[in-house]
Design a binder for these strands. Structure first.
Lengths: 294, 294
DNA sequence: ACGATTTTATACTAGAGGTATAAAAAAATC
DNA sequence: GATTTTTTTATACCTCTAGTATAAAATCGT
């Protein structure tokens, strides 16, 4: 997405959040973005594709933010989990994406639905893995079901909050209460071996949803390009080089990559390269973790 | 609603369930119902009002069915609760209303949203009362929050089931598992006195939603008319008379009304008056219970 | 059989998404 | 700085949908 396209997309998103997607006309977008029809259709082939592009971008951004935030936290810590969930929910709510997602999920547009589902399923799978780590849930299928129930509770409480016009309700509070309840449920779930959703169908569905559309080669190439950029401090240059070297080994040492990534982002704080460093860091983290899972 | 209007409404509903409301054009409805545009707009002032009328009708029907089913069951029995919830969910799912409801709730149409919310809130309040009866939850606010969480779980599991294309999943199974989990949650909830939604705001919201739009006077009048109809058996006539007399007392004895209502409907089994008897019975039950609550 | 109501067919409006095109403006290239 | 090339704009147009208007035909109540 180039600058202009991004500006249009942001105006469109703000309208979608305000009035809903179906209630927003192309003309509304043209007016708010102060562009002509031709320009709009120069960047997007249709309204549908405009929404789709916004969703993809949002997903991309959110995934990076998520990955960045999750890097190097103790995976068995109870409170870390609560914190992570809070951040994830906040990311979605801050941009008003939660509302847009719900509208799409319950509308007739199956293409857009697919995109949102992929987004959601990624979160569900992530949370399921976390449940396994934190509470020692053994069966993956059960963990996924638990994650689904958890998000169901969260979403329903949030929705009702909006309905009754309750302004003040911290996501952190909702998260903690839901986690409290979830712990009990997981206890019963494991004890009684209860599972209503078909484990195999769930796995199939999760597998059918492709995650972020980047390959390891692409990201490493991006890292290589980044390595060539001038005006970096000595330590910035060194850690970039070390990371690059590690990825070019035939036998990558994950523990080393893990260690390097934890410092990589921090090294570029208050540097003009901060944004790109963060992106690369998140993407690499994502790729490493994805390989681990499959 | 007269016959013709009902036929059109049914064809429209079948289309809404199949393709979604927004995806259904007036022309689709005209084609399926084999009517002309003029006829449609003779009965409904707009597509919006058509949906609205269908929802009102569905709500009316469902409320009667619900009330009828709930009459005279042991209110503290665990399994009765499970059975009741199953029936309620089945009623909505059988007509495809659940899908339509979700589409409306997450679309921009705030008028229709209001109708669905009233429908939903009625169920939530009902379930909250049941939780208080069955599990002895003391605080009404907590019971309502529990009901919200419960429906959240149910709905999210059903939604996911549809997503992963799992055909076979009995509502009964979902209900029982969710109740199992809910029991644990309620335990923690009461113990820790946890509540995230503002009790006062919840109460206000529930109060702001008007229930079925019938007054006691109207229903009693309907009963009086019913009483005058010919060709009833002796016992039918007697119980009708007794019921009518009870409602005309200045100090109605609820326990007597309760007892009479339990038999009233049964008395008209395989009688041509069955339908009307059931409707009257349900309405009276509804009115009695509503007074109890407020 | 007759008057009232309902239904139909048809033509119409306004607003939506989307296409096409020529001229103006901006950016890139030399 | 002049000239290409690309982007943007304005305008006119197309199709589809919701909804209105109206006169003629069919149906209904009595």
């Amino acid at each position: 997405m180039n600058k202009r396209k991004k500006v249009i997309a942001e105006h469109a998103l703000s309208l979608f959040v305000e009035k809903g997607i179906s209630q927003t006309s192309i003309q509304d977008i043209l007016d708010r973005a102060s562009i002509s029809k031709g320009t709009f259709y120069n960047h997007f082939s249709s309204k549908h594709e405009c929404v789709s592009a916004i969703l993809e971008q949002a997903r991309y951004d959110a995934t990076l933010m998520r990955a960045e935030f999750i890097i190097g936290k103790d995976p068995t810590d109870d409170t870390v989990l609560a914190e992570q969930i809070t951040v994830l929910s906040t990311i979605n709510r801050a941009r008003g994406l939660d509302v847009v997602f719900e509208e799409i999920l319950h509308s007739g547009d199956s293409e857009l639905k697919q995109i949102v589902l992929e987004y959601r399923m990624y979160e569900i799978v992530w949370l399921a893995n976390r449940f396994q780590e934190v509470w020692g849930v053994e069966k993956h299928g059960q963990a996924i079901e638990a994650a689904i129930i958890f998000f169901g509770m969260m979403q329903h409480i949030s929705f009702t909050r909006k309905m009754i016009h309750q302004k003040t309700l911290d996501i952190k509070v909702i998260t903690n209460v839901c986690l409290l309840y979830m712990k009990e449920i997981v206890g019963v779930m494991v004890e009684k071996q209860s599972q209503v959703l078909d484990a195999q169908l769930l796995e199939n569905f999760v597998d059918s949803l492709n995650k972020l559309d980047v390959t390891e080669e692409e990201v490493v190439e991006q890292l290589a390009q980044f390595h060539l950029l001038p005006d970096k401090t000595k330590s910035q240059q060194e850690i970039t080089e070390a990371l690059l070297a590690e990825f070019q080994l035939t036998q990558k040492r994950e523990v080393v990559i893990d260690a390097l990534l934890r410092s990589f982002g921090k090294e570029f704080t208050s540097s003009p390269y901060l944004l790109e460093a963060k992106e690369i860091s998140s993407l690499l983290w994502y790729i490493i973790n994805q390989r681990k899972r499959s």
